[in-house]
């Protein structure tokens, strides 16, 4: 019984491109070994961090969305922890609304229209 998950990984900025590709393919292979199938991968590239992590001020964000059996997540996360050029990672389970939201985003429906529909009266100050 596989559930939807999404991991966001922040790689250290000194990682060159092919190193990034190498480690990403390593992790995706590891994921598929544990019976996951990758739904989508997105590379946000180098981004400014809101606060320095391990006194680096920017990092490479990489997002993997996949479906996997529950028990494989902890095994993969052990690998994440072992890797030094991963600054931080976060695995979240996606409920049905999240999955539908990601589907919509892939078809480009989410954007100015649905999410940020700002009614005229601004409540939050």
């Amino acid at each position: 019984m596989s559930k939807h998950y999404e991991t966001v990984i922040i790689f250290s900025p000194i990682l060159s491109d092919e190193d990034l590709k190498k480690s990403v393919t390593k992790y995706t292979k590891l994921l598929s070994d544990h019976g996951a199938n990758i739904v989508e991968e997105r590379n946000w590239g180098l981004k400014q961090l809101a606060y320095p992590i391990q006194n680096k001020s920017n990092g490479i964000y990489y997002i993997i969305e996949f479906t996997a059996p529950g028990n494989s997540i902890s095994k993969v996360e052990v690998e994440f922890r072992r890797d030094e050029n991963i600054l931080r990672f976060l695995t979240t389970a996606l409920d049905k609304y999240a999955v539908e939201y990601n589907e919509k985003r892939r078809q480009g429906l989410v954007g100015k229209g649905k999410k940020t529909t700002e009614t005229s009266q601004e409540v939050a100050s």
Partner: peptide, 30 residues
């Protein structure tokens, strides 16, 4: 608006719910 899922990666939407110091706004304000 019928939004069901709040994506934690969409920061410009989340900015509406935090104040200048980055603290979360209380429910009576939002």
């Amino acid at each position: 608006t019928g939004i069901k899922y709040i994506d934690y990666k969409e920061t410009e939407f989340l900015l509406k719910f935090i104040n200048e110091q980055g603290k979360m706004l209380p429910r009576r304000i939002t």
